[in-house]
Design a protein around this nucleic acid. Sequence first.
DNA 1: AAGTTCCGAGTTTTT
DNA 2: CTCGGAACTT
Length: 748
Amino acid sequence: MDVSHLLDGLNDDQRQAVGSPLGAALILAGAGSGKTRVLVHRIAWLVQVEGASPNTILAVTFTNKAAAEMRGRIETLLGHSMSMWVGTFHGLAHRLLRLHWREAGLSQNFQILDSEDQARLMRKVLKSLELDETRWVPREIQWFINAQKDEGLRPKHLKADDPTRLQLIKIYQAYEDACKRAGVVDFAELLLRAYEIWRDNPGLLEHYRNRFAHVLVDEFQDTNTIQYKWLTLLSTPNGLPFVVGDDDQSIYRWRGAKVENLQQFRRDFPKAILYKLEQNYRSTGIILQAANALIAHNEGRLGKTLWTSGAPGERIKLYAAFNERDEADFVVNRIRDWVAHGGARREAAVLYRSNAQSRVFEEAFLNARMPYRVYGGLRFFERAEIKDALAYLRIISSRNDDTSFERVVNFPTRGIGAKTLDMLRDYARTHAASLWSAAEACIKSGLTQRAAQALQSFLQLIEKLAAEIKDLELYEAVDHVIQMCGLIESFKKEKGERGEARVENLLELVSAARGFTPEQNWADNAGLPTDANSPEDATRATDVVANRAISVPLAPLESFLAHAVLESGEGQADPYADCVQMMTLHSAKGLEFPVVFLAGMEEGLFPHQRSAADLAGLEEERRLCYVGTTRAMRQLYITYAEQRRLYGVDNYAQPSRFIGEFPVDVLEEIRPRLQISRPLFAKISQGGSLRETPAPGMKMGSRVRHAKFGDGVVLNFEGNGPQARIQVNFEGQGTKWLMLSYANLEVV
DNA sequence: AAGTTCCGAGTTTTT
DNA sequence: CTCGGAACTT
């Protein structure tokens, strides 16, 4: 077979990687170096050159978008992607758990919690433990538990060194019990359990090791501990993992990602061949020069220098705005120019560190009548009314789902108040039962007639709906439920456009159900040769495994529900409209734009105060800046505001140290403040102050003396005139905000 | 059970 | 400042 097209149009490094001999390989792929291309071509290579059967291939990504793109490109190249497992970690883990729910100790119709559901359940658990929510903050505990699961740790693995930790472990255990009772798993649990069933069932593991000879992983630097363990469990000792990543683009440490996994991989697979993709096809020479210089400030990199055969292009424009509104106006005007010169709005992107910054830009775009799109809002399946409707469907599908029960038992209101619910919760807790069965029991005794009747009507409603939709098509079932459960009437009563929009969204849910074809979800992938259907697998698989696999087919409703949680849908606005793009730096990863604005480049904001405390945090911020820089294809603007109103108060910050880490000659100041290329410029990266402050003689970093608190260092100012306040870090006393006019500070 | 006010927190985000 | 949740009224 002629396979030359598989290598056509690839550069030497890419070819080497694509045609790498069978065995472990690590591809260090810089930004814009064509990593997805390599991954996709490698898969085609495995099939067409190495003769690998497509169903021995497992390709793993982090986002649904990446998975869909990869699948699409494989299909373009091979004509099909059938029988390959291509998906996200979570999607694949889910698929395994559906196949092997018994080994996983789950109920067959287990449901998945998204983070909001998880937070609700957490609050419920804390309440049932009668813990003070101000001391045991639900969000923090949720974070703690997820972090443990990301590390592969169950409550029993944790050591209680002190009372606080002991309590945390107890809560973790209680939360697990609650999940089990309700038949639900959270996102982290999907991964952990998928790992555990392999770890604890040698036969099962053996089956999958035989089945997936070829494991390919995208964005490897983002894997957390449990994902890494899951992958290596599968790949050891005969697997041929082919992993692609970039240590310089690791920006998810805060949610458990371990860049070290790249290094660990080299230790665990010493024979792995290392390839580096350093030729960049995206940005101009100057942008790459800037990015290279910036990231060189990080320590312990694997090392990589981007280069291009293209032109150097224009210098990076640096704009010192007077304040955040001036910054936004500047961006608007520059995009106007871009459009006036024939550019499209969608080619311009405004990137910022935190979502709060988007507001001012939105106002400016609105003012200028310039269409824009903000990424990262609420997704379709996360909207309240959609979750309400899904909760009805979920409780129909699984009566024990307490989270859904609580959500809709009295919504729309049907006279079931707090007292009744308290009783149910109490009964459920003491009898280790679900709220549904508690309701059944309490109706018989223990409730007032009126409450019992109200509750009864709810139970009957659910049973009735369940019976009625039994033989309906999925979309008819969804339609029937939203019509009959009372949500629509309730939203219609809501005043204003809000209610209307909600009704529309509910109807949209029906169309989503109608458009939900088997191709979109894993249950159909199960329609591809399942383990038991495929003769070669059946002979290898243990009987246990093969028999289980037959029991896969998941009812359409259940698979739709899983789809809704795992793939929460696009945000608003249609992606084809010609809109200016606005998003956080995090969500910009993987994208590219001809014109990029990196806004809010100020100390405290970027690098963010809360991340800059330790070196690891600061380096991650720097990688984030690197990611932002490398999004730009032709033009890059960097802006900062000398004064910024944040949370209602004025703040004065220094320009970000990252500005000072770019080479002097790649920058061009539009409103000269920093006097780039003069010695003064060097001060930026050392934290020197270059602007006036409300306190004459004092500036950022000055040493000051206070009569009571002693000596300290000036950290920040806010406000003007008599309202001006100053933030000082006093030695041994910590950081304090003082009214400048009363503090009587003395410069030391 | 619905409507009010008050308080506190406010990086980053996928699944 | 601005949102969301909790605690308070009505």
